[in-house]
Design a protein around this nucleic acid. Structure first.
Length: 568
RNA sequence: CGGAGCGUAGCGCAGCCUGGUAGCGCGUUUGGUUCGGGACCAAAAGGUCGAGGGUUCAAUUCCCUCCGCUCCGACCA
C-alpha cells in the first residue's frame, strides 16, 4: 500500500485529550480518530491492526473447538427482564424504542440472547458440549469513557459461551477457553497473566481475568512472588492473625470535632490501626454496619458478596444519624440495633478506640467480643502490598493491570431463567451448565501499544502490526530508486507480506520520524545513497542495527527476518 | 452523579485578570532554495472565539444558564 493513496495523517503533537502513552500514540500515528467521548473511528492503519488481533482470536477460538456465529446487537429488552438484568444493568445499557414502542436494547453482552438461542437449538445431550462465539460491537453507556479504546461506549468484544451437561464437563470447556486465552495473548505479543477475579453482575461462582501489567492499568493486581497467587485487588484475600487482646473497662472521652481517622491519630497520639472504623451502609434498602481497622479501607465488593445484596451504598448523613444516634464521625459498634460485620483481623480485638454513637465523643478500651454484637468476622478489607499471602503467608505485592479478558463459570444462572434444557441419556430434562468468556478486542489492541512502545512511537509485534514492513522511498524522483521499490513491493507481496510504502515528497527526516511513530517491525530504506553503498537498508524497529543488503537479496532477507520474529 | 480543570483556525496553544470583535507554532496551498533523523525564504487560504441569555456605547474578555471534552472516585472487556 502506498502512503499517498492512504488516509494516514500523523500528528507531531500529543493530542490534548489523551493521557496515557498508548492513547496518544494511536491518535498521533493516525490509527484512530475521536468522534465523541468513548466513540472512535478506526482509520486504515488502526483497522488493519485490529483485524490482525481479531484474526488471532478467531483462529484460537476455532482451534479450541468453538463455533463462530453472529448475534444481533439490537435486542428486545424483554429478554433482559427475563434474566432480571434489565434492572441490574440499569443506565449502563443503551435502550431505545422501535416504532411500535417496544423497548429495545443495544447489547452490552449476550448471555440472554445466546441462552435463548441454544435453549431452542439444543434438545439432546448428544449435541453437547457446545461452545459458540462471536466478534462483535458491544454497547455500554459507560459513566466515564476513558483512555481512548480502553473504556469506550462502543467497543469490539469477542464473547464466547459454552454449554455442557455437567459441572465437570463445564470445567473442561472452561479450561479449553483458559488455554486458548493464554495462547491468544501470547500471540499478540502481550505479557498477560490470569488472576482470580470477582464475578460482578455477570454472575457465577468463579472467574479469572487476564491482565496485562501496565502502570496505566485501571485495576489493582495482587501478586505473590513466592507461591504465584494472583488476584484482582477487588477479590484478593489475605492471611491474618487473630488479635486475642484484653483490656479494662470502656471509658468515654470527649472528642469535640474529632471525626476522621487522621483527627483521631492526632488527638490520641496512637497509630491508625488501634481505631475501629465504623462504616454505615445501606444494602438493598436496609442499614448495615461494617467494621475495619482504622488504617484499612473496606472492600465494598467483598461486603456486598457477604451480604448477598443487589445494591450496596454508603449511607447518607441522615441515615448515619438515625442508625448511630450521632452525627457522622462518631459511629461505633457498641449498642447498635442493625447487623454489624467486622473484618476478620478484628476477631478478639480489645483495647481499641471507636466512636461512642454520641456527638463529640469516642470510647476507649473497647473489647469487640465483650462490648458489641458482631454477626460475623469475615475478610472485608482491600488487600494491599505488604499484606500476607492467603496461600503461603509471604508478603504480597500490588501492581496495576489492564483487564483484556475474563473467563467465567456461570453454572445454571441463565439456563434456569430461560429454561434452556436438554434430554439426557435417560430421557430426563436437565439444565445446561454454562460458561462465558470475553476478550476486549479493541482494548487488547491498545494494550499491545501500551506494552510495546518507546519514546519514538509504537513498536508493533509482527503478529498484530498493520504492516510487517515500511518501505521508505527516499528519492521519489530517482528512477532507479523507484524501480527498486516497485520490485521489492512486488516480491514481498507475492510472499504474502504486507508492505507500506512511504512514497511522499518529504525530506528523509520526516519519513524516519513517521516510520518510528507508526512502528512497523521492519523498516526498509531505499534511497540513492543507500544504493550507491551497495543496496537497501534493513532495520528492525526494536534495534539500532542497520544492515545493507544487495537489492537482489533484499526480499529473501526480509522474509527470513519476519519468519524469525514470528517464531519468538 | 460527586470533586477538579478545560473549550479561541485541521492539530497544539497565547490573548481574557485590567472590555475597543484576534494572534503564535505545527499542518495545508503556491513559488523558490534545500534534501539521510520532524529544513529555510516568500506569498496565501483557513475563525459563528462551544451555545444561549444578561451587563455595557462596545463582550473572546465581566455575570448567569446550558452543552461538550479531560482528569480523580463507583461500573466493566
Amino acid at each position: 500500500m502506498r502512503w499517498t493513496r492512504t488516509l494516514v495523517t500523523t500528528l507531531r503533537d500529543d493530542p490534548q485529550e489523551a493521557e496515557i502513552a498508548s492513547h496518544k500514540l494511536m491518535v498521533r500515528a493516525g490509527l484512530i480518530r475521536k468522534l465523541s467521548g468513548g466513540l472512535y473511528t478506526f482509520m486504515p492503519l488502526g483497522l488493519r491492526a485490529l483485524q490482525k488481533v481479531a484474526q488471532i482470536v478467531r483462529e484460537e477460538m476455532n482451534r479450541a473447538g468453538a463455533q463462530e456465529i453472529l448475534m444481533p446487537a439490537l435486542q428486545p429488552a424483554e429478554l433482559w427482564e427475563r434474566s432480571g438484568r434489565l434492572a441490574a444493568m440499569g443506565p449502563g445499557m443503551f435502550k431505545l424504542r422501535d416504532r411500535a414502542e417496544r423497548l429495545m436494547a443495544l447489547g452490552p453482552t449476550h448471555e440472554e440472547v445466546v441462552t435463548e438461542l441454544l435453549g431452542g437449538e439444543v434438545s439432546s445431550y448428544r449435541q453437547l458440549p457446545c461452545t459458540v462465539y462471536q466478534i462483535q460491537t458491544k454497547f455500554r453507556d459507560e459513566i466515564r469513557p476513558r483512555f481512548g479504546l480502553m473504556r469506550a461506549k462502543e467497543f469490539i468484544m469477542k464473547d464466547a459461551y459454552s454449554f455442557d451437561t455437567s459441572l465437570e464437563a463445564a470445567d473442561a470447556s472452561y479450561q479449553a477457553m483458559y488455554d486458548a486465552y493464554t495462547r491468544i495473548f501470547k500471540r499478540c505479543g502481550l505479557d498477560a497473566r490470569a488472576v482470580e477475579a470477582d464475578t460482578g453482575d455477570i454472575g457465577g461462582k468463579w472467574s479469572h481475568e487476564f491482565m496485562v501489567l501496565a502502570d496505566s492499568g485501571e485495576d489493582g493486581v495482587i501478586d505473590c512472588p513466592v507461591c504465584g497467587y494472583a488476584a484482582n485487588q477487588e477479590r484478593a484475600e489475605r492471611k491474618v492473625a487473630e488479635a486475642n487482646e484484653t483490656c479494662g473497662a470502656v471509658e468515654e472521652i470527649a472528642t469535640p470535632n474529632v471525626r476522621t481517622i487522621d483527627d483521631l491519630v492526632a488527638f490520641f497520639a496512637c497509630p491508625a490501626e488501634r481505631f475501629i472504623k465504623t462504616l454505615v451502609y445501606v444494602a438493598d434498602g436496609k442499614p448495615v454496619v461494617a467494621l475495619v481497622p482504622g488504617d484499612r479501607d473496606l472492600n465494598e465488593h467483598k461486603f456486598k458478596r457477604l451480604l448477598g445484596a443487589k445494591k450496596l451504598e454508603l449511607a447518607d448523613d441522615a441515615t448515619v444519624q438515625q442508625v448511630t444516634g450521632a452525627p457522622v464521625g462518631f459511629a461505633g459498634p457498641v449498642g447498635l440495633a442493625v447487623p454489624v460485620y467486622a473484618d476478620q483481623s478484628l476477631k478478639g480485638a480489645a483495647g481499641r478506640i471507636t466512636g461512642a454513637n454520641k456527638a463529640d465523643t469516642h470510647i476507649t478500651n473497647v473489647d469487640l467480643t465483650r462490648d458489641a454484637t458482631v454477626a460475623a468476622y469475615e475478610d472485608l478489607v482491600i488487600v494491599g502490598g505488604g499484606d500476607m499471602c492467603p496461600r503461603c503467608g509471604k508478603p504480597l505485592q500490588v501492581k496495576r493491570g489492564i483487564e483484556v479478558g475474563h473467563v467465567f463459570k456461570l453454572g445454571t444462572k441463565y439456563t434456569e431463567a430461560f429454561d434452556a434444557a436438554y434430554l439426557n441419556a435417560e430421557g430426563q430434562r436437565e439444565l445446561m451448565v454454562m460458561g462465558c468468556y470475553g476478550i476486549g478486542v479493541t482494548r487488547t489492541l491498545q494494550a499491545v501499544i501500551e506494552q510495546c512502545h518507546d519514546a519514538d512511537g509504537i513498536a508493533w509485534p509482527v503478529t498484530v502490526a498493520p504492516f510487517a514492513v515500511t518501505l521508505l522511498l527516499l528519492d521519489p524522483k530517482d528512477a532507479a530508486v523507484c524501480e527498486v521499490v516497485d520490485t521489492l513491493e512486488r516480491e514481498l507481496q507475492a510472499q504474502g507480506i504486507d508492505v507500506f510504502t512511504d512514497d511522499r515528497e518529504e525530506r528523509p527526516g520526516v519519513k524516519f520520524k513517521d516510520a518510528d511513530l507508526i512502528g512497523c517491525p521492519i523498516r526498509v530504506v531505499v534511497g540513492a545513497k543507500g544504493l550507491a553503498k551497495g543496496g537497501v537498508e534493513i532495520k528492525l524497529r526494536t534495534s539500532k542495527d542497520v544492515a545493507i543488503v544487495p537489492v537482489a537479496d533484499a526480499a529473501a532477507d526480509i522474509v527470513a527476518r519476519i519468519r524469525a520474529m514470528r517464531q519468538d
